[in-house]
Nucleic acid binder design. Structure first.
Lengths: 212, 212, 212, 212
DNA sequence: CATGAATGAGATTTCATTCAT
DNA sequence: AATGAATGAAATCTCATTCAT
């Protein structure tokens, strides 16, 4: 976190390296526990046990469970944002670009199911009177904005912000929602199988919507 | 024990009527508290306080919080199922029928936002190692089946069950998911405004997808 | 309970007869529940359920669980006292009389195991700071006195009261205590089988002790 | 985790030593409360208050009240077992050996009245549908077996197990039972006074029984 | 008299957080 | 920095008791 240690040429002293590793262990353990039994049912003790560190250690790295959750959500959203952002000037029309956007989501969720479950759970805390300061809401908004920035590269200029926001909600909602139901009603193989035609239809409809 | 009351034609004595009213008060209060602060943050005491009954009264009507949640979810799903079921032989092609299905969801969610939030939250308990016996999963599956039964009236015969399931997940997921994001990024008016074109596009492409 | 009803020739009105039956049902149910799960674990509800009467009905007949327990203990001790009391001038020497006394206990316990368990449990409440008024202790003392009165008919005159009390404690203690351990370590048949010789030896030595 | 402490020869760190002390405080307090007001009337709070520790601390050391009771009974039975076990080849005939066995019980109960009351209470939980897995029954059986092993050193070879079991039940039952009644009917001094002749008679009778 | 719905005091139990080492 | 024993506030749940019908 803080670049270079005062006393050595090494970027971090041993203590800091250890602290960094402990923080990581806690994040990993928390992600596992949160997604296995849910954020609320996850107690600090369960997390520290899973991370194989003492309970008191938790409080050296995080103020409370919420700030740990926050960190995990930030991290997951960041990853997702990177994924959906075009690294270069990708050619292609509406449909190709939209398809790619869709696929990146799907691939991300299939590759990191824990992150998907976490982000889905995190959504819950919003609009429930629990997110007083909005720290948890923020990354989700950032994600929507990233989505919109990305779409802006192929959307017609001068589109109403609300319309764009509606579009991004539709895309995000569709992918998140489809997965949430697919997890009850379908096996992983069936999800992949049934996703392609559904994607086609969805992208088609979005494309048509934009073409107007 | 008591079939018919001596003094009335009603089969229930006053005691049972009172009990029924208390149960209702608890269900109402729980729905409010669950959707305001979340199922996990809702304590029995908060619920009974809101219902204006004694703490012990709760346990005369429900075994625990989970069984109360269960009852609420069952009820909400039942309502939604009734709503999306065609009461008669509705005429119209793919598009009209699909549009109606979509609209019924949207209208239901706009009319009963609490039920929407509850159902969305309830989804959380599934696939999190918390729903050991599947009592909570069951109503969601029933909902998907209702959706499929409904679609069967206008889908081509002999469609693969998995494909149908994928479709129902897509519709359910889209509506639930869109709302969940729309609630962060948009006001209620903006939701309604941006929903129409999105719906149009979604339905169009679904229809086209089915036409193939 | 109260002999003749004012208004009829019948000894009791229907209401009182019903009340009597209800009280009896409660006593029977309580004896069963107390001996099956223990006095403390027995709730009023379990008792009234077993008696198949309403919970409120309990309070028409007994002030609380303790007074019900009290009534049951009184009844059991009364029965035992009657049993161990010689109805007439029984002939026979020390040994015969002592043997009979011992056998009456054994037979009573074998015939009414529930009463045995109840009386054994009831002992518990004594000397535990729970029996503030001594209402429960009283019947046990009465039982010891009955035992002593009975023994007085064949004990030498002028024996020290303390010595007599020691003797009665020895007899009562031996029978109660033997049963309590026999119930862990032996089957009912084995109890009966192993009891005879033990009794013989015990009675013999008591007789000899008294003969001195 | 920590085998040997760096600074001492002791294997336990201070934390564990403190934990051990707390556990001890809880056991001591529980014994006092159990024997003063009874196992059932003893609440966790009363015990922790008496032990002068926080309520939550209890659950760091015991799963519930039952497992605490269990630990206390195990400990008491262990002590009693040690007491009644001959440490060396004691000479003497039936009578001397039996007398010693009897006296060890009596002395143990007089020296540790709390343990006596606890063991007497613990008996209650057996055969009352409360000791489902037999964890509480076990130590009592172990005690009977110890008693029998001890008697085996002076009993004739080839005696039937059932007969031996009957004998051990008689001894255990007599001592436990005598005390239980003596505590109602006699003062401590009177108990000691009246015990000697009773013991004589009992031992005589057992000796005679065995001589046959 | 009988009933059982309602009640709240109190018991059990969990868990985030502190703190001495 | 790491630890885990201790803590008590708060949650869950039980049950004796009341009371309107």
């Amino acid at each position: 976190m803080n670049g270079v240690d005062k006393n050595t040429l090494w970027p971090m002293g041993r203590a800091q390296r250890r602290a960094g590793k402990t923080r990581m262990k806690l994040l990993d353990a928390a992600l596992a526990v949160f997604t296995e039994i849910g954020v609320d049912a996850a107690s600090i003790e369960k997390i520290t046990e899973r991370a194989d560190v003492g309970k008191g250690t938790f409080y050296r790295h995080f103020a409370d469970k919420r700030s740990l959750l926050q960190a995990l959500i930030e991290e997951a959203i960041e990853k997702l944002n990177v994924r959906i952002t075009d690294d270069a000037e990708t050619p292609g029309g509406f449909e190709t670009r939209l398809e790619r956007l869709f696929d990146e989501h799907v691939n991300f969720f299939l590759q990191y199911p824990r992150q998907y479950i976490l982000l889905f759970q995190g959504r819950m805390f919003i609009k429930l009177g629990r997110d007083l300061t909005g720290e948890i809401e923020a990354p989700y908004l950032r994600y929507l904005e990233t989505l919109e920035r990305q779409m802006a590269t192929f959307l017609p200029d001068g589109m109403q912000p609300t319309k764009i926001r509606g579009l991004s909600c539709a895309i995000a909602g569709f992918v998140f929602g489809f997965f949430s139901f697919a997890m009850i009603g379908l096996t992983k193989e069936e999800i992949e199988e049934s996703l392609r035609p559904v994607r086609k239809a969805f992208v088609d409809s979005m494309a048509k919507f934009l073409a107007r």
